[in-house]
């Protein structure tokens, strides 16, 4: 009874806090009306050219910053897990590593139920993809990502009129774009932009995953795996269907490349569309509406991460099964 009462009391306070924040956001959006967002596909550079790579200057882009942040988070988790797993000697892990162990164990059991004895080979791909994509997807929920950055006047078209206020905080000059045309927001180059909204990131993972599928297939079936793509075994023995089998093999070959595109653009499309939607909702209805869409993006980010990893896992487990002998046609 006491607990019930207490939770009721907490909810009673929380709703006043929510109401207060909504009223506060009404006033702040009156004082500083949000700008029309600037949407662009390629990542922006946040530093000067660092070194030459393949004959081109290499800049540190804001999606690369986000990727590095996700890397650091994952490596910290991995390191703490490694350290505590060495200490614990088979005991159940405590604290945050125990939580992570539980989650990763769920992924492992899923892999085992799908892939059977190849689970140990497939599982690292599945888990790494899921974890990295999950961390970088959820980064878009953090306030300040996509909105805090360097101000670069070169990006703004010359005829645009912009209100720029300069604040002095702790001896630093902070500039804020507080008004003007929609072009003005293009001047802000955010330090961090969600990694999944960069096609390089998603394409890299997709290529890695599809290459991994081929590697797993080759390890499981040896050279027999390649007959899936170049199927001449029935070409001269069976009059009509041999040709069809050969054609199916070629289609399989094409579908491997389509897999790359499909992986890359699925993740990119979902997360890019999600962050664009967050900008647009935030600029159209500055009060409260974005909260609901943040919740939606939370789920979309998790689902896309799991789908990316799970599809890789399923394709890999299919690659371990030979089709040549199982089918009777």
């Amino acid at each position: 009874m006491a607990e019930e009462k207490q939770s009721g009391w907490r909810w009673g306070v929380n709703r006043w806090i929510v109401l207060g924040l909504i009223i506060l956001s009404v006033f702040t959006s009156q004082a500083y009306p949000p700008l029309q967002p600037h949407i662009q596909l390629p990542a922006e550079n946040v530093s000067g050219p660092l070194f030459m790579l393949l004959g081109q200057p290499f800049y540190l882009t804001n999606t690369l910053v986000a990727t590095l942040l996700a890397d650091i988070i994952l490596l910290l988790i991995g390191f703490s897990f490694w350290r505590s797993s060495r200490k614990s000697e088979g005991q159940a892990l405590k604290g945050i590593t125990g939580v992570i162990e539980g989650m990763v164990e769920v992924l492992y059991n899923l892999t085992e139920s799908t892939a059977g004895k190849w689970a140990k080979t497939i599982f690292p791909f599945f888990a790494t993809i899921t974890l990295l994509v999950l961390v970088s997807n959820w980064m878009e929920l953090i306030p300040g990502v996509d909105s805090i950055g360097v101000f670069d006047e070169h990006h703004i078209a010359e005829e645009a009129q912009c209100d720029i206020t300069t604040y002095h905080v702790l001896g630093m000059e902070l500039e804020a774009v507080v008004g003007g045309d929609s072009e003005c927001s293009a001047g802000v180059v955010p330090f961090v932009r969600v990694a999944s909204t960069d096609l390089n990131f998603t394409l890299a993972i997709a290529i890695f995953a599809v290459a991994g599928i081929q590697v797993v297939g080759l390890r499981a079936q040896g050279m027999g795996y390649l007959t899936k793509f170049w199927n001449t075994s029935t070409l001269f023995k069976v009059p009509m269907f041999g040709v069809i089998d050969f054609g199916v093999g070629l289609i399989e070959l094409v579908s491997e490349f389509v897999k790359v595109l499909s992986f890359a653009f699925r993740l990119f499309g979902n997360i890019f569309a999600g962050s664009v939607m967050l900008f647009v909702i935030g600029s159209l209805v500055p009060v409260f509406a974005q909260s609901a869409f943040l919740m939606l993006e939370f789920f979309v980010g998790a689902i896309q991460a799991i789908v990316f990893g799970m599809l890789t896992m399923i394709f890999m487990s299919q690659a371990t099964i030979s089709h040549a002998h199982g089918d009777d046609h």
Partner: peptide, 15 residues
């Protein structure tokens, strides 16, 4: 999930 992914990939191509 596999089927949804295949169906969704058409939508992704549209995007």
């Amino acid at each position: 999930i596999l089927g949804i992914a295949f169906a969704e990939s058409i939508g992704i191509f549209c995007l």
